[in-house]
Amino acid sequence: MTTIHDQIDNEVKTNDVVLFMKGTAQMPMCGFSGRSVQILQHLGVPFKDVNVLASDELRQGIKDYTNWPTIPQLYIKGEFVGGADIMYEMFQSGELAGLLKEKGVAA
C-alpha cells in the first residue's frame, strides 16, 4: 500500500508542474487556488492540478510533505516553489516565468 507521501512524491516527480489546490483547474473552490490557476494559465504553462479536497489524507499529507500549512502549493520539477502569495509575488516580478524557462518547462 503506497503511503500518501509516496503518492505525492510520485505526482511531483512525474509531472513538470503540479498545483495542489482546492478544487480543480476547471472549478477552483477557493480564491487563492483560483488565482494560482489563472497565473499558470496566463503563463500558458501546462500543469497537473491535484484536488486536495478529494481526500482528507491528501489534504493533510501535502501539508506534512513540505511543512507548509496552506493550500495551494506549487511544484516545478519536483521542487516546492511556494503558496499563493509567493506565486503571486513571483508572477508580478517575472521571477515565475524566469524559473519556468530556467527549468526548461515549455511556456
Partner: peptide, 27 residues
C-alpha cells in the same frame, strides 16, 4: 529563501496557520 522565511513565520504561529487562521498574505 522566501519559502523559508514564510515557514519561520508559520512556525511562530504554532499551528494556527491553515487551521484557525485561513489566510495570511505574507510579505
Amino acid at each position: 529563501s522566501r519559502v523559508q522565511q514564510h515557514q519561520m513565520v508559520y512556525a511562530a504561529l504554532k499551528g494556527n496557520m491553515g487551521g484557525v487562521l485561513h489566510a495570511l498574505a505574507l510579505t
